[in-house]
Design a protein around this nucleic acid. Structure first.
Lengths: 250, 250
DNA sequence: CTTTGCGAATATGTCCGACTAATCGCGGAG
DNA sequence: CTCCGCGATTAGTCGGACATATTCGCAAAG
């Protein structure tokens, strides 16, 4: 394909930013369309040749993008039958990319609720395990993340990054690879919902004290306190998020 | 790395059994090699041209397979730098395909332990939610799965399928899309570990009564009982699995 | 001797066009 | 009316060419 007019053409192809390859941009574009519901489950998207031409990309790049979506359970391709969107139940909703696509537009309040419900199940239990198994390095990682959170506010990307680091360090401390995998998903969810929460008004609450209580309980090796502190943290975070979503119900 | 096997087209075309496309077979092959540790994290796999030729497939098919692995977080490709295996922490261990690859060889006892720990966190909480929110149809689905489990034993694929259906129906009843997504992962894990457990001759225990207790508690709308029954079920299942893996458990 | 910068080698990324394989649907034979 | 097969359609695979982006070595400057 001719890259004759680089800047303009690339924009039309879907805001390929630094490092993001073309197929990544296509996957992003299609993924958003599917997750947002623009292409409903069961629906069949247009043929490869036509769609690739419409997006002004080669069929190869388009196909590789579709492969990525298929690997995440969003679509399924069958010869002659075409490529169709799979039912939501087949989607890999916890995949970081899928989460990013889900939150790139207007997040579905129901889905946010479900994510918090999952966090409310997993993270307190994880905090308990972390309190039992943490080593010196884990405590250090938690405190480092806390320090970053104090320096920046949650309104900044740096602050949200620190928040992610905190939850990541906590799940790492559980020494459980399955929980660690959930870390990436939960981290993404935390970041997105926090960003959304900040969007409404001035910061509703200083989140640091809640995190300190969790960190202290883990450092002290007190599983019960860690579980309870985490439960409280998530409950408050959910309350704030829900409140801001209700208030700014567009 | 590269497969020593000289090109045996018939063999590979035979390997890709029903419905499985060529790129699926390649992804399966590479995925197994990575998850099993044959290609260590950080290691760089052979160049596309060479590897595609070694596998006797076109570069397109090979690349599409690598795309699938990249989408699951197993590898990352960068121009000139090559395609290298990502650290385990980046892997999407809960992806059904990755789980299948992980259990296609000798399962890692530590990983099995981690999976059961996750189940022990998620499923009792899910049972509690299911008891609160179940509708008639959910109870029917649970009972139908139970009936199937009674007809077949866990030693048969039909029996394991029924077991999967039971846990799936339970998570469906929670009305939580995030938990439903975990359903596929956990279901796969349950199936694999159960099969592994059965591999050591005599069936250790009739799993049906445990499931009946969970089902009854959910049908009765008793969250506490449902949570406790599920906790007992998982504990027993883990004990059986660990016993059959014998010595390898922590 | 260390550092900086430039150029070339190289592996992935994208494009193209043809061919293959699988399958759905239509229309004719029984 | 049913069943079978043939053709049309769409994804799958192929191979080969070119673009792009890094890495790496080498050379010149400090």
């Amino acid at each position: 394909m001719s890259l004759g007019q680089p800047a303009e053409e690339r924009d039309r192809r879907g805001e390929r930013s630094t490092g993001r390859r073309l197929r990544g941009a296509i996957a992003h574009y299609l993924g958003r369309a599917i997750v947002s519901g623009a292409i409903a489950p069961g629906e069949k998207l247009t043929g490869e040749v036509a769609n690739a031409e419409a997006l002004d990309v080669s069929r190869s790049a388009y196909r590789e993008a579709v492969q990525a979506l298929a690997a995440k359970g969003l679509v399924e391709s069958r010869t002659k039958a075409g490529t169709r969107v799979l039912p939501r139940s087949r989607w890999n909703l916890l995949d970081p990319d899928v989460l990013a696509w889900a939150f790139s537009g207007e997040p579905d309040p129901g889905f946010v609720h479900d994510l918090f419900e999952l966090r409310a199940i997993v993270e307190p239990a994880a905090a308990r395990l972390a309190a039992e198994r943490r080593e010196k390095q884990d405590i250090a990682a938690l405190k480092a993340a806390l320090a970053k959170m104090r320096r920046h506010t949650l309104a900044t990307e740096a602050g949200r990054s620190a928040d992610r680091e905190f939850h990541d360090a906590l799940l790492q401390a559980t020494r459980n690879s399955a929980l660690t995998t959930l870390s990436a998903s939960i981290g993404a969810a935390v970041s997105w919902t926090t960003q959304f929460k900040q969007r409404t008004k001035a910061l509703p609450r200083d989140a640091v004290p809640d995190h300190v209580r969790v960190s202290d309980a883990i450092a002290a090796g007190d599983p019960d306190a860690a579980e309870e502190a985490m439960r409280a943290l998530i409950d408050l975070a959910f309350r704030d998020t829900r409140h801001s979503m209700d208030g700014a119900a567009d």
